[in-house]
Design a protein around this nucleic acid. Structure first.
Length: 488
RNA sequence: GGCCAGGUGGCGGAGUGGCUACGCAGCGGCCUGCAAAGCCGUGGACACCGGUUCGAAUCCGGUCCUGGCCUCCA
């Protein structure tokens, strides 16, 4: 194992060596649960999922912690707007998040702590910071005094003069120094809050990650990840809080940050109205296609999300599923090597293309390596038939059976009575039953078409093929007969 | 304004001082009743201007452009 990662703190690629041999701790900043996840939220999840899978391959004990931020002013605002309670909003958003990330093939983290379950730990940390002189109470708030931390700014590479010069937001009057940030703030009325030595209130944003990483990974741990946008101020502040509260013990050893994402060339924003939700993309494309598209550029590069890109990823997966068939996954050195080089997923994908080409030409070893290499990235996880025929899908379309009568009455008449009855009861059937009938109907038409072709009645055979194509089913005539696949 | 990334063929996207990246799309061919899939072949790039070098897309300087962050905001 020779994994190297680009460390934001040192600004260079470094060989990864865990603090304790065979043991890796990784903390990734998770979602603030006030709305559905958008593509931008999905990028770190997928990137760190690949890293997690890679680490698990090489280290016996990997502990992946990803938090849920369930106390935040945006959640309070969402509750006020919708009229739903904060608990309702966070519960349903968390559930939706889990569904979406699972659909993208992301493994759940080992521990998913919620901020609201760790307020006592945050209070202890804040008390310690006050005792050490790194924090002060002012006007019901507790603030971190940035000037007490001589290392402040190192992670993000900025000095205090620059920060003050660049400040464009009005400084709150209770701050001693404009750079100071909130550890605890007062809550009133309906706002969520907890009793504390500083009165009824709630934690600032940054302290939760310091408290929860301490709780589950210890004072010093290996990898801390998140989006680039979090480097400042969020991660900078985490470092300050944690190192000061822990007597200068090192905090995260490797900082890994993924790049930003635009949609069709534009920055996602509410004002443009182009916030692209993961669920909406999932309605039109398989999770693996979304995942491959996400991994097709290097995680530190900017990524422009386009519909065309998703379609291309899907085409590629079709090729790979065809080439790999249902080969047993084998270790794939080319992919491992690429991923160990700072998660070079595009290079890994190039290696998979080469294996796919070899496998298509009958190389069984390559087929296994293709499966194995792709699996390491959370791709090619399905069976070939599940991918192409989609019999694990939730929606089936058998409209082609009803359209049969007009162009081909003689065939429509010959449809078995049992099948006809089954079609009539379509709406009462379970998804699984529908899948069975769906497959049965397709095979029935393939049989009719075979007859027509044997009699060289190509017009009839082409009508059948076109009918199915309208229902997004593509027929392919091969040397061993006709096969079908779903194309949407 | 400050700090930080990045600008590679029609598109996506690695790489990096001298060796075809790779893929999608396109074009030609094989196969097929026709398709689809597959296979074979094929053109096409390194933002701009200087410099260093035997040699630069790759290093240095400058210019232009794009994106991110700049204190409770993702």
């Amino acid at each position: 194992m020779a994994l190297s990662l680009y460390n934001t703190r040192t600004r260079e690629k470094q060989l990864f060596e865990p603090l304790s041999p065979g043991r890796v701790g990784m903390y990734v900043c998770g979602p603030t649960v006030y709305d559905f996840a958008h593509v931008g939220n999905a990028r770190p999840v997928i990137v760190f999922d690949v890293l997690y899978r890679l680490l698990k391959k090489s280290y016996e004990h990997v502990r992946y912690v990803r938090n849920i931020t369930d106390v935040d002013d945006k959640i309070i605002a969402a509750a006020e707007q919708s009229g739903d309670s904060i608990d309702e909003i966070t519960a349903r958003t968390t559930e939706a998040y889990h569904e979406d990330m699972a659909a993208l093939g992301a493994l759940p983290p080992d521990i998913e702590p919620r901020a609201t379950d760790h307020v006592p730990q945050m209070i202890i940390m804040i008390e310690r910071l006050i005792a050490r002189g790194n924090a002060y109470e002012a006007d019901g708030h507790v603030l971190f005094a940035v000037e007490t931390d001589k290392n402040y700014g190192k992670l993000s590479g900025r000095n205090r003069d620059e920060m003050i010069a660049g400040a464009r937001v009005e400084v709150a009057p209770y701050k001693k120094d404009p750079a100071d940030f909130v550890l605890w703030k007062p809550s009133t009325g309906e706002q969520p809050g907890w009793e504390s030595p500083w009165g009824y209130g709630r934690p600032g944003w940054h302290i939760e990650c310091s408290a929860m990483s301490r709780e589950y990974l210890g004072m010093t741990f290996d990898i801390h990840g998140g989006g680039r946008d979090l480097v400042f101020p969020h991660h900078e502040n985490e470092v300050a809080q944690s190192t000061c509260a822990h007597d200068e013990a090192e905090f995260a050893r490797y900082w890994v940050h993924n790049g930003f994402l635009t949609v069709e060339g534009e920055k996602m924003s509410k004002s443009i109205g182009n916030i692209l939700l993961v669920r909406d993309i999932l309605a039109g494309a398989p999770g693996e296609a979304i995942r491959l598209n996400m991994l097709s550029s290097h995680y530190r590069q900017p990524l422009d999300w386009t519909e065309g890109g998703v379609t291309e990823s899907r085409t590629i997966l079709d090729r790979w599923y065809r080439a790999a068939a249902d080969a047993e996954p084998l270790a794939c050195d080319a992919v491992i090597e690429a991923l160990e080089d700072d998660l070079n997923t595009p290079k890994a994908i190039a290696a998979l293309h080469e294996l796919s080409n070899a496998a298509s030409q009958g190389d069984a070893l390559a087929a296994g390596q293709l499966r194995g290499g792709a699996n390491l990235m959370g791709l090619l996880m399905k069976s070939q038939s599940a991918w192409f025929k989609g019999l694990d899908a939730t929606e089936y379309d058998i409209s082609f059976m009803n359209k049969l009568a007009e162009p081909l009455p003689e065939i429509a008449e010959r449809i078995d009575e049992q099948v006809r009855q089954a079609i009539d009861k379509w709406d009462e059937m379970s998804g699984e039953q529908q899948g069975t009938i769906y497959e049965l109907c397709i095979n029935l038409l393939i049989d009719f078409r075979k007859l027509a072709r044997e009699h060289r009645e190509f017009q009839t055979s082409d009508i059948i093929r076109d009918l199915l194509l309208e229902a997004n089913i593509t027929l392919e005539d091969g040397p061993d007969g006709t096969t079908w696949r779903r194309t949407v």
